[in-house]
Nucleic acid binder design. Structure first.
Lengths: 210, 210
DNA sequence: GTATCAATCATACGTTCGTCTTAATCATAC
DNA sequence: GTATGATTAAGACGAACGTATGATTGATAC
C-alpha cells in the first residue's frame, strides 16, 4: 500500500490537471485518493501548501533532467556551439508526456500555472525556472552569437509560451479529434514544436549590427 | 451615467483580469461597479453567463479588426503572396494592449482562458477562433507554399501559445522590473513576438518533398 | 502489558459564495 | 394623477468549501 501522503499528491495532481485548482475540492481529492479528509491538513497544512508540495515534488527532477540533457548536448558538441534543435529538445522534452521519469500531469499544471494569477508561480516555480533560464540562456547565447541577451530572453519567453500552450491546451485534442490534425502522439507534437521554436530562435536579430 | 450592464461588464473585466475568474466574487464586482448585487443575476443570468457575455462583447470587434488588417495586407500584396511579418502582425496586434479600439484586459483573459479547463473556451471562444484560424490559415498557406496544411495548423497553434503566454504572463513584468529586459512597452513585445513567430513559421517543412 | 506517539477517522465550525425572493423605485404613457 | 413595466435595492437561503477538533486506532519500545 502506497503511503497516504503520496496518494494525496497523486490524486491531487490528476484532479488538478483535469479540473483546475479552484474547481477541485479537498473532498474530491481525498475521495479519489481513498483517504480521510483531514489527512490533507495533517500531512500538508493547507490546500495552498498541498499545491506547493505538488510542484516541489516534480520540478526538481524535471529541471535536473533538463540540465542533464543540456550537458549531454554540450558534451557531444565538444566545445563548439551546440545545434539549436538539440538545445530546444533538452528544454522541452522533459516536460512533455513521456519525457521524464515519473512524469504525470505536471506539464499541464505548469502550463496552466503560467497563465494563472497569484503568488504561487512567483514563490515556487519562478525561482526554480530562473536557474534553468540562466543556464539555457548561456547555451543559446553561445549558439546564437548574432543575438543580444535581451533578444534571447524574449525568445525563451516565447518558447515557454508555445510549450505551455501545447501542454495546457484542451482544445488541441479536440481539433485533433475533428480531423484537423492527424497525429495525436507526443512525438509529432514535440517534433513540430522543436522545428517551430528553432526557426523562431534562429530569426535574424532586430538589432542593427555595426 | 453609464448604464448598469456596461458598468458590471467593465468592472468584471478588470477584476477577472487581475485576480482570475474563481477568485473574483460577484460581490467584489458589484462593489467595484457600484451597483447592487442582484443586478448581475438580473441583467445576466449567472456568473458563467456574465463571463460569456464579457467575451462576446470583445471577441467580435477583435476578430473583425484582425480580418480588416488581413484584408488590407492582402490588398497591398496585390495578388502576390503577402509577407509573413504582416500576416503575423494582423493576427497579434489587435489582441495586444493598444491594438484595438475599446481594448482593455480582454487579451489577458483570453490568454488565461486558453490554459483553463472547462467548457467556456470550447463553447464561446473556439467557434469564433475557428473562422479566424481558417482565414489566416489560407493566407499562411499562400505565403508558405512549402508547408503542408497540418504543419500550418501546428504553427498557428504555437503562435497562439507565444501570444497567449505574452498576454497572460504576470511573471514577464516582474522580469522586466528586475532589469532582465529593458523595454516594457507593448511595441517592443510585439516586435520581438512578430520576429520570433515569423522565424518559426518560415522554418523548413518536416515533410520530405519529392 | 502498557506507555507513547504518529496516523487516521468522523464530524463540526465558520465563512463565503452564487442565487433567489420580495419590496421599493423610477420612467413613461395615458 | 395613475397605471404599467422595467430596473434597482436589501436581505435571506442553501450549498460547498477549507479548516479545526477530539476521539480512535495502530505500531513500536520498554
Amino acid at each position: 500500500m502506497i503511503d497516504t501522503k503520496t496518494r494525496i499528491l497523486d490524486a491531487a495532481e490528476r484532479l488538478f490537471a483535469e479540473h483546475g485548482f479552484d474547481a477541485t475540492s479537498l473532498r474530491a481529492i481525498t475521495k479519489e485518493a481513498k483517504v480521510n479528509l483531514a489527512s490533507v491538513n495533517y500531512h500538508f497544512q493547507s490546500k495552498d501548501a498541498l499545491i506547493e508540495a505538488l510542484f516541489v515534488r516534480r520540478i526538481s527532477p524535471l529541471n535536473d533532467e533538463r540540465i542533464r540533457m543540456l550537458n549531454e548536448v554540450e558534451r557531444r558538441a565538444a566545445g563548439a556551439a551546440a545545434p539549436i534543435e538539440e538545445l530546444v529538445d533538452a528544454f522541452v522534452r522533459p516536460v512533455l508526456p513521456g519525457g521524464a521519469p515519473g512524469h504525470h500531469s505536471i506539464g499541464i499544471l505548469l502550463g496552466r500555472m503560467y497563465a494563472a494569477p497569484g503568488g504561487l508561480l512567483a514563490r515556487v516555480i519562478a525561482p526554480q525556472m530562473d536557474a534553468i533560464r540562466e543556464r539555457f540562456g548561456r547555451a543559446f547565447r553561445r549558439s546564437l552569437p548574432g543575438l543580444e541577451a535581451e533578444e534571447i530572453f524574449w525568445r525563451i519567453h516565447f518558447t515557454i509560451g508555445a510549450l505551455a500552450h501545447t501542454l495546457a491546451s484542451r482544445g488541441l485534442l479536440e481539433f485533433i479529434s475533428r480531423g484537423m490534425c492527424s497525429a495525436a502522439d507526443a512525438d509529432q507534437a514535440r517534433t513540430q514544436l522543436i522545428r517551430f521554436v528553432t526557426g523562431g530562435l534562429r530569426a535574424p536579430s532586430l538589432v542593427e549590427k555595426p
